[in-house]
């Protein structure tokens, strides 16, 4: 319950900042940023929100379903503009993905270094799982 209250309080704070102060971000994004800041500043303990937050992120798909059903209202328009929609969904998604990955590869430290760094950061992780993922990733 505490986690739920925290999520709603930050959502509400985001709304206030958006409506009254005029912060030009969607209110839910403002709430998210405030909560990240509060977690880093240790004003909010991770344990307080972790459980509620993981429920919401795990079942996020449910909350989209009514909006998707709204496609019926737009069916005519979507089929009229199907070429635009198809090019932007297929081309746009692939373009964004490749550009992002290229920038990351360009700026990243060498992979070996990064692996060691990650090992240090989370010594609890078993090396076996990493090997497994790696192999699976290539064979797919």
């Amino acid at each position: 319950m505490r986690g739920l209250i925290i999520l709603f309080v930050f959502n509400g704070a985001g709304l206030l900042l958006h409506e009254w102060v005029g912060v030009p971000l969607p209110s839910n994004v403002i709430g998210m940023l405030l909560l990240v800041a509060a977690l880093f500043l240790k004003w909010i303990k991770l344990e307080w929100v972790e459980e509620s937050a993981s429920f919401f992120t795990k079942h996020m798909m449910l909350f989209f379903a009514p909006l998707i059903a709204g496609v019926t209202v737009f069916a005519k328009e979507l089929s009229e503009a199907w070429l635009s929609v198809a090019i932007s969904v297929v081309g746009g998604t692939i373009a964004v993905m490749l550009v992002t990955a290229a920038v990351v590869r360009l700026l990243s430290p060498a992979e070996a270094e990064v692996q060691i760094e990650a090992e240090k950061a989370q010594p609890s992780q078993r090396p076996l799982t990493k090997e497994g993922h790696h192999e699976r990733g290539i064979s797919q």
Binding site: M32, L46, E50, A53, F64, A65
Partner: peptide, 15 residues
């Protein structure tokens, strides 16, 4: 139901 997308987005702060 879509109303809960609000707290769900705030919840993304945790990951």
């Amino acid at each position: 139901i879509t109303f809960f997308l609000g707290p769900a987005t705030v919840a993304l702060a945790v990951p």
